[in-house]
């Protein structure tokens, strides 16, 4: 074997390992910091190997939370989970219904509905911050799960994905179910939904991560600790002076905030990749 081809065989592995190190090192540091005391972390340079305080740090983070915060990681985790599940499930349900109506029914406002949903693509939260906040406040939904979830459950991409999928289903099936005496809703439940499992799973992965990682919207509408999500809690814990920050608690909470969406991606990697790249078509 020539020297040249050996280099060519090993080089990709080296590059990929380097990339993995760059991607993982920051997270490794978070883990390390979550096993030390605040004093250890503040005594620069901080240690680079695990310390003995893992259990007590996580216990403090989960049960009590940082002293200046007033919310435990357990509470915030519950809020993040409710928000993530509410957004992902809500989006899927609402989008399935809309896509079903648009594909399988003929009604005068069909085009209008389709284009209205399309236009939402061009109106992300970032461009309508203040007025959306005002709507939520007028509806009395500040500091509530409904306020966190409802404005997020419209998704043009989800409607388009389901629409695309429904359009590929032979219409004879709908016709046959009618002849057999099934109502449109029975067709939806017993024929269409079971066939749509794969796109639904793909959507769930993507939307769960999207929901769990929401930041700007909860930042706007949650002012009470009992509605803080993990990300908002982390931001609040970091807003004091450096020496007052309980780094070990912040880092334990940060790691807890990363684990659920990472697990979802790793476990459902196939559906996730398919769901992502299908959107492009």
């Amino acid at each position: 074997m020539t020297e040249h081809s050996r280099v060519r065989r090993i080089a990709p592995n080296l590059w990929l390992w380097l990339a993995i190190i760059v991607l993982v090192f920051p997270i490794y540091l978070v883990f390390i910091a979550s096993t030390h005391t605040s004093a250890d972390i503040l005594s620069a340079p901080m240690p680079l190997t695990p310390g003995p305080h893992l259990l007590e740090n996580y216990k403090e983070a989960v049960v009590e939370g940082s002293k200046n915060l007033g919310a435990s990681a357990l509470t915030m985790m519950k809020n993040s989970l409710i928000m993530a599940l509410g957004i992902s499930i809500g989006k899927i349900v609402v989008s399935l219904m809309a896509a079903y109506a648009i594909v399988f029914f003929k009604f005068p406002l069909r085009k209008f509905c389709f284009w209205s949903i399309f236009i939402t693509l061009m109106l992300p939260v970032e461009v309508r911050i203040m007025p959306t906040y005002k709507v939520i406040s007028d509806l009395g939904m500040l500091n509530s799960y409904a306020g966190l979830i409802l404005p997020m459950i419209v998704s043009a991409t989800a409607v388009f994905l389901f629409r695309q999928y429904f359009m590929s289903i032979p219409r004879e099936m709908a016709e046959a179910s009618q002849i057999d005496g099934a109502t449109p809703m029975q067709f939806f439940w017993h024929v269409l939904l079971p066939m749509t499992r794969t796109p639904i799973a793909a959507m769930f992965v993507i939307q769960f991560i999207y929901g769990w990682n929401q930041y700007l919207w909860p930042l706007l509408i949650t002012t009470k600790q009992e509605y803080y999500t993990l990300l908002i809690g982390i931001n609040r814990m970091l807003s004091g002076a450096d020496v007052q920050i309980e780094w070990q608690i912040v880092m334990a909470t940060t790691l807890l905030a990363m684990i659920p969406p990472a697990l979802v991606v790793v476990i459902m990697q196939k559906q996730f990749v398919a769901g992502m790249t299908d959107r492009e078509k």
């Binding site: 990929l16 997270i27 990682n213 930041y215 990300l231 931001n235 990472a262 991606v265 996730f272 990749v273």
Partner: peptide, 14 residues
């Protein structure tokens, strides 16, 4: 591939 894909799950804020 798995190692390079999963950081997608890390929130922008994180």
């Amino acid at each position: 591939k798995t190692m390079l894909i999963w950081p997608y799950a890390v929130a922008t804020m994180v």
